[in-house]
Amino acid sequence: MGEKNEGDAISFHLKRTQQLPLDEHGLSSLSLNDSRYYMNHPKRGVALIFNHMNFNSNLPTRQGTNKDKDDLESLFTKLKFRVESYDDLTKEQIRNVLVSVASTDHTDEDCLVVVILSHGDNRKIFARDTHYSPELLWISFDGFHAPSLIGKPKLFFIQACRGDKVDAGVPVRHQTQVDSTKREDRYISIPVMADILVMYSTVEDFLSWRNPKSGSYFIQSLVRQLSFHAKEKDLLSILTYVNREIATGYSPEMKQERLQSYANKQMSSVVSMLTKEIYFV
């Protein structure tokens, strides 16, 4: 039935640290009236990609992750980012890269992107040697550690598992227009968690799917939707399209075998603390 999909996903728990520094009027020096982030600095910014295929432990090799990495590099290059990719780093090496990037001057840059491609579990992301908490990724980029990024979007995309539960989906009636005069009821599969408003970082305890040849559901959808809509839509709208594609999509193997209703499902989730719209134009 084709290549076997493998599991991947992770928690995205956000922890409050300290308040950002304010001026004598109790406000930051940034404009509070603009509805969009200013994205016309001399440089777009850096996109960090931490790609994990091999591990020192007994974790399985993540076949297909290089497809995700290559597609992400192409995407962010087209979006005018300076792309830096790292393969199979240890936890300490990841920390060092993040601290180094955070300490540089981002005054002339629009924003920051960090992407993780790895194995995970509930509240764990795996580096080559050990696991770490997701907070490691953004703790270096708060207003105290990266002041030149204050008021600028900092975007983190995490492809990893946060449990071992499988979302088998729940059937829902879907009407299809057969011709100009006839509609036909058909059944598709959507995730169990679909249509519930839960403002969690991600759906806890569940797997995220990756194909050994074609890459992960999430990253491939992210690349497709950003490539298609980046010049006309704001980022949150595009990420909603990613949610929709993943929720209603199914694996190529299931499509080929006409087993759409039985495909394993997945529900991506967005936790947004953005205060303005992002347009990559």
Results as ranks from 00 to 15, higher is better:
A102H: 08
S103Y: 02
T104M: 15
T104S: 15
T104R: 15
D105K: 01
H106P: 03
H106T: 03
T107V: 02
E109S: 11
D110M: 12
C111H: 07
C111T: 07
L112H: 09
V115G: 02
L117A: 05
H119D: 07
H119K: 10
K124R: 13
K124D: 11
K124N: 11
F126S: 02
R128F: 08
H131I: 04
E135D: 12
E135Q: 14
L136Y: 00
I139M: 14
F141Q: 00
G143Q: 04
F144R: 15
H145A: 08
A146D: 04
S148R: 01
S148Q: 01
K152V: 07
K152G: 09
P153F: 04
K154G: 10
K154S: 09
F156R: 00
F157G: 03
F157L: 09
F157P: 04
A160W: 00
C161P: 00
K165H: 04
K165V: 04
V166H: 03
V166W: 05
V166M: 08
D167H: 06
A168S: 08
V170I: 15
H174I: 05
H174W: 12
T176I: 15
Q177A: 14
V178F: 10
D179M: 02
S180R: 12
S180I: 12
K182V: 06
R183H: 14
E184L: 11
I190E: 03
I190W: 03
I190G: 01
P191L: 08
P191Q: 04
M193P: 06
A194P: 11
L197T: 15
L197E: 13
V198Y: 14
M199A: 15
M199S: 15
Y200M: 05
S201H: 08
V203K: 02
E204M: 03
D205G: 09
D205T: 14
L207F: 12
L207E: 07
R210H: 08
K213Q: 10
S214M: 13
S214Q: 13
Y217K: 05
Y217F: 11
L222N: 01
V223D: 13
